[in-house]
Nucleic acid binder design. Structure first.
Lengths: 115, 115
DNA sequence: AATATTCATCGTATATTTACGATATAAGAT
DNA sequence: ATCTTATATCGTAAATATACGATGAATATT
């Protein structure tokens, strides 16, 4: 049980799901907003505004890095993060095409009965 | 540990995270696409196209119901599901404003150095 | 050189998610 | 009335996610 079946779904669905998962925790949404507000942030600034410990924030930052949504560089004792706009744009497009496809169907079926 | 800190984030961030979580598994993305392709589906049709057992699909359907993304009605021995376009549109807007805000910042900061 | 700062990582506890088979329930078919 | 079909729910196992304190590593300060 709890065998991983994700490989059995298509690539597009997996990519959309992976991005959604990256932003499926309010801490990660808040981190992305915090960074984008100032263009870039050092880790400590993010820890300051979140209600989480430094180690937990670091863990969330790592997940955003793994998802490719942010990039980070070390500057002295500090770590500087900023948004990877290119990856962000790519994901935004994925979402839009998902929603737009859905929207098109919605329009096509608007007059039919629905359950 | 593993205390839930989600209440300490703001409502907007939580709503965005919750929606993202609803579509953070490829099975749920595939279910939404399957339903929208035909406007509505009975449960059995969905089970047929997914590489998962009936009970697992039922569980994913329940999550989509809880998130408000689909609605379902019982028709005889069958269950009929369709997309809740209104909720879907609301969530799409939430995403768009998230991305657009980010995009605006990106444009504003385009010339500055980033890490 | 010794100490302090900043942050990532490790270890660990708990909670949640994912997945399935078995079972229950309710309607339809025989 | 009995049997079949369709689906939700229960119980459960395993995997993953969330959170923290402690520790490590690397740079900066004294």
């Amino acid at each position: 049980m709890a065998i991983n079946k994700k490989e059995e779904f298509n690539k597009t669905d997996n990519e959309l799901a992976d991005f959604a998962k990256a932003i499926s925790h309010p801490a990660r949404v808040a981190i992305l907003k915090t960074i984008s507000r100032k263009n870039m942030c050092i880790c400590g600034e993010i820890v300051e505004v979140l209600p989480l410990s430094q180690s937990t924030v670091s863990q969330h930052l790592k997940e955003l890095l793994n998802a490719g949504l942010i990039v980070g560089t070390i500057e002295g004792t500090k770590s500087c993060y900023c948004i990877n706009w290119k990856a962000f744009g790519k994901f935004a497009n994925g979402f839009n095409s998902f929603f737009n496809n859905a929207k098109t169907k919605a329009d096509a079926f608007r007059k039919e009965n629905c359950c």
